[in-house]
Computed example of a mutant assay.
Amino acid sequence: MRTPWHLWVVGGVSLLWNAGGAYDYLMTQLNNEAYLSMLTEPQRALMDSRPVWFDAAWAIGVWGSILGSLLLLLRSRFAVQAFLASFLGLIVSAIWSFGIAEPSSFEVMGSFAAIFSLAIAVVIVLLYLYARAMAARGVLR
């Protein structure tokens, strides 16, 4: 089957979008002082209190999305599973950020944190649905 033009657009734009999350993840994990200097003291304390399982879920969320975008561009049906894993990673990390962390991300960063997390979740779900539709149409092998 011929690759529809929109697959290249969705794959390319999603890779750029997800690269932002990967950059944030890497700068935080590498404890890059120049990058982290933009955080307030309470935000920095929240980041420093992350449990290991949060970091694992965050990694699955970030790298699952990057992998999903790359697999979409490679026309691989495994893009569906990668986006699903990314969504599950986001859900698990959000449970800590908004439900377990004291203070929560909402308390430390305000409504922006919740709105941005919701936007990320919507994008991942849309990418998952798109990949699933492309797999069902036989575009992804």
Results as ranks from 00 to 15, higher is better:
residue 48 D to M: 06
residue 72 L to K: 07
residue 91 I to L: 14
residue 67 L to F: 01
residue 84 L to Y: 03
residue 3 T to E: 12
residue 78 F to E: 12
residue 52 V to Y: 09
residue 134 M to P: 09
residue 91 I to Q: 05
residue 39 L to R: 09
residue 72 L to W: 07
residue 134 M to T: 08
residue 125 V to C: 11
residue 20 G to R: 07
residue 128 Y to F: 15
residue 13 V to H: 01
residue 67 L to Y: 00
residue 59 A to H: 03
residue 28 T to Y: 04
residue 30 L to A: 12
residue 22 A to Y: 04
residue 70 L to A: 11
residue 105 S to P: 01
residue 128 Y to P: 03
residue 115 I to N: 06
residue 51 P to D: 11
residue 38 M to G: 15
residue 23 Y to G: 02
residue 41 E to H: 03
residue 12 G to A: 12
residue 1 M to L: 12
residue 77 R to F: 10
residue 24 D to F: 13
residue 128 Y to V: 03
residue 10 V to K: 00
residue 30 L to H: 09
residue 98 F to L: 00
residue 124 I to F: 11
residue 75 R to Q: 14
residue 58 W to A: 13
residue 86 S to T: 03
residue 15 L to S: 12
residue 17 W to R: 02
residue 27 M to A: 14
residue 67 L to M: 02
residue 14 S to A: 14
residue 135 A to I: 02
residue 102 E to L: 07
residue 128 Y to A: 02
residue 140 L to Y: 06
residue 24 D to T: 07
residue 119 A to K: 06
residue 64 G to S: 08
residue 125 V to D: 08
residue 96 W to T: 00
residue 122 V to Q: 01
residue 37 S to A: 15
residue 71 L to I: 01
residue 126 L to M: 12
residue 116 F to D: 12
residue 96 W to H: 02
residue 98 F to P: 01
residue 130 Y to V: 00
